[in-house]
């Protein structure tokens, strides 16, 4: 466990990327209610539960046209 803490400065940026990506996707999701398929709850779950890939799926195949 101690070694994991030792590498914390390297782990934090990775977590940051995941959080920022999820946050950007969630903000977009809240502001838009048009999706190519699925509903809001489904996309919220995907964005929050599937790291990295979730928000990417939302942006690439989930979100409707702006």
């Amino acid at each position: 466990m101690e070694e994991l803490i030792e590498y914390l400065p390297l782990i934090i940026p990775i977590l940051m990327i995941e959080l920022i990506l999820a946050a950007v996707a969630l903000i977009h999701l809240v502001r838009h209610d048009q999706y190519r398929f699925g509903n809001r709850l489904m996309w919220i779950l995907i964005i929050l539960l599937v790291q990295i890939i979730g928000p990417i799926l939302y942006f690439s195949i989930g979100k409707g046209d702006d």
Partner: peptide, 13 residues
């Protein structure tokens, strides 16, 4: 259209 965010975060990750 968010493409750069997707690609940048993926490859950084």
């Amino acid at each position: 259209n968010y493409k750069w965010i997707i690609l940048l975060s993926t490859f950084l990750f």
